[in-house]
């Protein structure tokens, strides 16, 4: 794909399908565990927007909701699993990807979506991310990047911008943040995109693409944490941050992921950066074992399937 640069403008908002927005009932309510509401997220937090987008993506995807499972780690985004009306697994800190690996491989009919935060997926869970991407396991990873550890009270994260203040970086962060799409690309992810919670339409579309894409798909979503990141750094509230995303985003599909690091001065590069065809772990395994064992190879579940 050739990189194309367009400033994201208000024109995009015309695409919002207002006919779907019912006046009384939230149109995505059926996708949520209503008996668990209200949710725990703060006013102005972007996670609810991401859940809304995911719900819309699911509703328009045509998937049987009995065959979609969500796996989360620990943290604010880790709570997404608890609100989705799907088979949902709230696992341990950093380990949502290996749990999802086992779930997906033992039940190959499932669509597996991992929802977690930047700290969960890239600090404590970083190694699992690298290896799942390398293996091209067929799953979608949705990473809500709010630049901080929200659940524990705003500590420095692997994505915290330089100079920002966090409770464990009280005098300004001096650790360079990680460029998540670049890491995903380098490790072998076969679909990589970045959007912000301002880009609702694009995000819904990306989530659908990520679920349909065969292989390891990764979507980074920049999202405000008004309580612990924005306030501490005097960056306003959630609305201010979304406005910032709107004004500073540049669409660059097919961008070289080396060039999409988030900095204080450069625009935020959004878009679909990587889309490549690569055999999944399961396809590679089946092909290799068929080639070497021939008729003796019995694919998983081929015999003795537990009913």
């Amino acid at each position: 794909m050739n990189p194309t640069e367009i400033m994201v403008s208000d024109a995009d908002e015309k695409d919002v399908d207002t006919s779907r927005v019912a006046p009384i009932e939230n149109p995505v309510l059926s996708m949520l565990r209503q008996d668990r509401l209200p949710h725990i997220w703060c006013p102005g937090c972007g996670i609810g927007t991401v859940v809304n987008c995911f719900s819309r993506a699911l509703m328009s995807s045509g998937h049987d909701m009995n065959n979609v499972a969500v796996v989360s780690g620990i943290g604010c985004t880790g709570r997404v699993a608890g609100y989705m009306n799907l088979d949902s697994f709230h696992t341990t800190h950093g380990r949502s990807i290996p749990f999802a690996t086992g779930l997906r491989l033992a039940n190959p009919g499932l669509k597996v979506v991992v929802f977690s935060g930047d700290g969960d997926l890239f600090a404590i869970g970083g190694n699992h991310f690298l290896h799942a991407a390398r293996r091209n396991l067929d799953m979608l990873i949705v990473c809500v990047n709010n630049f901080t550890y929200g659940m524990t009270g705003g500590q420095v994260a692997p994505t915290t911008p330089l100079k920002s203040t966090q409770s464990t970086m009280p005098f300004g962060n001096f650790e360079p943040p990680m460029n998540l799409p670049f890491v995903a690309d380098a490790a072998g992810a076969s679909y990589v995109a970045r959007w912000t919670v301002f880009h609702i339409r694009q995000l819904v579309r990306a989530m659908k693409e990520g679920m349909e894409h065969k292989g390891f798909s990764f979507i980074e979503i920049m999202s405000p944490c008004p309580t612990l990141y924005l306030r501490r750094n005097k960056l306003g509230d959630g609305v201010d941050q979304v406005r910032y995303f709107k004004e500073h985003s540049v669409l660059k599909n097919g961008a070289n992921t080396q060039d999409v690091a988030i900095t204080a001065t450069d625009p935020i590069v959004v878009g679909t950066f990587v889309e490549r065809e690569r055999p999944t772990w399961l396809d590679s395994r089946n092909a290799q074992l068929t080639a070497t064992l021939g008729d003796r190879f019995v694919p998983y579940g081929g015999q003795n399937v537990q009913k």
Binding site: T92, P98, F99, A106, H128, L130, L293
Partner: peptide
């Protein structure tokens, strides 16, 4: 592979010990 099962060598024991739990729910 000739019995219809699955083995995966994970990246560490932390991953192994939770991949099996995902598989159990699978």
């Amino acid at each position: 592979p000739t019995v219809g099962g699955m083995f995966i060598q994970m990246e560490d024991e932390i991953a192994s010990s939770i991949a099996i739990q995902g598989a159990a729910w699978g």
